[in-house]
Amino acid sequence: MEIFQIVAIGLVAAVLSVLIKNQKPEIGIYIGLVTGVIIFIFIAAKLQSVIEILNQLANKINIDDIYLSTILKIVGIAYVAEFGAQVCKDAGEGVIASKIEFAGKILIMVMAVPILVSLMDLIINIVP
C-alpha cells in the first residue's frame, strides 16, 4: 500500500525539516519543497489513470470536450498555485504567497469566463 510509504517519507522529512530549520532556515525551505514534489510524482501515475477514467466517463456522457478540458485546466491551475503559495507561506513570505494565489484566481477566471459569457448570450437569445 503506497499510503504507508508516503506517510513514512512525509514524517521523516518533517523531522529533518524541523532539525534544519533551527540552524539554517534557507535549507529548510528546500526540504519542504522537495518532499512535496517527490510525493506528488510518486502518486502521479495513479492520478493519471483517474484522469483517464474521467475522460472516458465524459465521452460516454456526451458532454462536449471543452467542458471537461476547462474543468481539468482549472483544477490544474488551482493545484499548482496552491502548491507554490504554501511553500512561500512555510518560508514565512505571506506577501509572495498571496500574490501567487491572486494570480491563480485571475487565470482561473480567464478560463471560466468564456463559458459563462456564451451561456448568457444563449439565454438572452433564447427568450425573444
Partner: peptide
C-alpha cells in the same frame, strides 16, 4: 528517489 531529501538534509547539517 527519496535519497534526495536525505542528501539535502545532510548538506544542510554540513553547511550549518
Amino acid at each position: 528517489s527519496v535519497d534526495l531529501i536525505f542528501k539535502i538534509a545532510a548538506i544542510g547539517i554540513l553547511v550549518s
